[in-house]
Amino acid sequence: MATKELIICRCEDVTEAEVLAAIGQGATTADEVKRLTRAGMGHCQGRTCRRLVNQMLARNLGQKPEDQRQVTQRAPLQPISLKVLAESSD
């Protein structure tokens, strides 16, 4: 499959070619790929693509997985409506 058609982040429709372009532009971390392409910024917050992006960084830049800087995980773990949150007690 052509790299332009291969979807890495399916929430934000980010292709393999776009991630490779970000790496080509100088991105060395998943954080930078995320800011340049929006991979990981969508509905699932990177649940699927963050491993793929890290693999691509490792493969293209010779990084060891254990040395890679991980993106910050934040709440909520899954999307929650404003109404449900508003009715929760803090």
């Binding site: 969508g42 909520p76 409506s81 404003l82 109404k83 949150l85 508003a86």
Partner: peptide
């Protein structure tokens, strides 16, 4: 979310992702 819905109640079902 309380503060948003107080001003625009129509957003009730919109989901927070982060």
């Amino acid at each position: 979310p309380r503060r948003m819905l107080k001003l625009v109640p129509a957003l009730a079902e919109v989901k927070v992702i982060r």
